[in-house]
Amino acid sequence: MPADPVARPPVVYYSPSAFASSLWRRLRSIWTPRFGLSLLAGQAVSLCITCTDVTTTELVRRNWFLPTTQTFLLYLSLFCIYTPYTIYQCEIGGWAKMVWKDGWKYFILAACDVEGNFLVVKAYQYTDLLSCMLLNSWSIPACLFFCWIYMRPKYHWTQMLGVLVCICGLGMLAGSDSLADKNVAATHRGKGDAFMVVGATLYGFTNATEEFLVRRSPLYEVVGQLGMWGLLISGIQAALLEHADMPTNSWNGATIGLLAAYTAAMFILYTVAPLLYRMASSTYYNISLLTSDFYGLLFGVYLKITHYSPFWLYFLAFAVAILGLIIFFWHATPEEQGKTDPQKPSYVSTLRGEGKLSGGQNLV
């Protein structure tokens, strides 16, 4: 990525005192307001993921398992909030023109998002928790690849190191689950693992694609279109695949409350995620989610959902994951994450034309 106009303070090595002082200046340069907001937003979406995991687990325990219907409510809420606001901002004629011109891109984004959610939820039925945790991290290299396709960023080796450190933290969390005998036996490991890999790849694609779109279009347009097309796709899929099971599932006050909590958490996540893409990047968003299992343990213990006690390795793994998030910004500031290499053509130049970019960083 291009150098920041205000470069990071260099680390010098000619004496121990100079090294210590220069290292301290370098660390202080990382802790900007933008970095603080990025760190908080990343942990906020991680908590939202934890909430969705907890509510989904509780729904399954109450014999309610309709994964597409569950996400249909999310897309319905996104459509009802963001599409009217988009029409208000653009007027009905401008909105219709946008749908006619760019609707196909949002349709592909929504289709991959719907099917990614569906496949990941299905994977938990067939493979064990340890495999799900580890294979779901495949979304990180997938996201890096698709970001490179779209925007041609030049990743610094310290960014790759930050990603690897975060994945090490995930590995420690997975090891903690195994040592605590938290893992559940797989019923069909091959099928479940395949579902998880494909789902994680779709997650990486949708995250990178949404980052590409929100950097060049208003947030309300992107999220509103994701809600509209996701509502259509998930509605058709739920009608085809789950209509027979809907009457047999347990519908009561508890399940409706859990569905409401799930939808609220996902709505917050889908609202905050595009903001995080702009503040940092979709790659940073993905590695931020690696702390969600730690929050999941705390939720489970506090709500008495699980009988497991916090294993000491969980806390070390959480610290390692946070360290990885800091290392990710050792070389590049959050503002730099979405910049492209000016020497290489990006996908956007072929899709919309260089002269048509409107400085997405300033668009709401």
Rank of each mutant, 00 (worst) to 15 (best):
A3Y: 06
P10D: 08
Y13L: 11
Y14L: 06
P16I: 03
A20L: 14
S22E: 15
S22R: 13
L23R: 06
W24E: 14
L27A: 13
T32I: 01
P33A: 00
R34I: 05
Q43S: 03
S46L: 02
S46V: 01
C48P: 06
I49G: 07
I49E: 07
T50N: 08
C51Q: 11
T52C: 06
T52E: 10
D53W: 04
T57A: 13
E58M: 15
V60R: 09
R62P: 09
N63E: 12
W64K: 11
W64P: 07
C80A: 03
P84Q: 11
T86V: 03
K97A: 10
V99W: 02
L109I: 03
A110P: 05
C112F: 11
C112H: 05
D113S: 10
E115A: 08
F118W: 05
L119I: 04
V121R: 06
Y124C: 01
Y126L: 11
L129A: 06
L129G: 03
L130D: 11
S131A: 10
S131M: 11
M133G: 01
M133I: 03
W138D: 09
I140T: 09
A142W: 14
C143H: 05
F146W: 13
C147W: 13
W148Q: 08
W148H: 11
Y150A: 07
M160I: 12
G162H: 07
L164Y: 00
G169A: 04
L170F: 00
M172T: 00
A174N: 14
S178D: 09
A180F: 04
N183F: 03
R189G: 05
G192H: 01
G192V: 01
F195P: 05
T201Y: 14
L202S: 00
G204S: 05
T206A: 12
A208Y: 13
T209K: 15
E211I: 04
L213W: 12
L219Q: 09
L219I: 06
E221K: 11
V222H: 00
V223Q: 10
G224M: 12
L226E: 12
G230Q: 00
L232K: 08
A238H: 02
L240G: 09
A244T: 08
D245C: 07
D245P: 04
M246Q: 07
M246W: 13
M246E: 08
M246T: 07
A254T: 10
T255C: 14
L258W: 12
A260Q: 14
A264Y: 01
F267W: 07
A273V: 13
R278G: 01
M279A: 05
M279S: 05
A280M: 03
A280E: 02
S281C: 07
T283M: 12
D293R: 03
Y295T: 00
G296W: 00
L297G: 08
K304T: 04
I305M: 09
F311E: 09
L313A: 05
L313N: 03
A317R: 03
F318Y: 14
L323W: 15
I326D: 04
I326Y: 12
F328Y: 15
F329V: 03
H331L: 07
E335N: 10
E336F: 02
Q337V: 06
S346W: 10
G353D: 02
K356Q: 12
N362M: 05
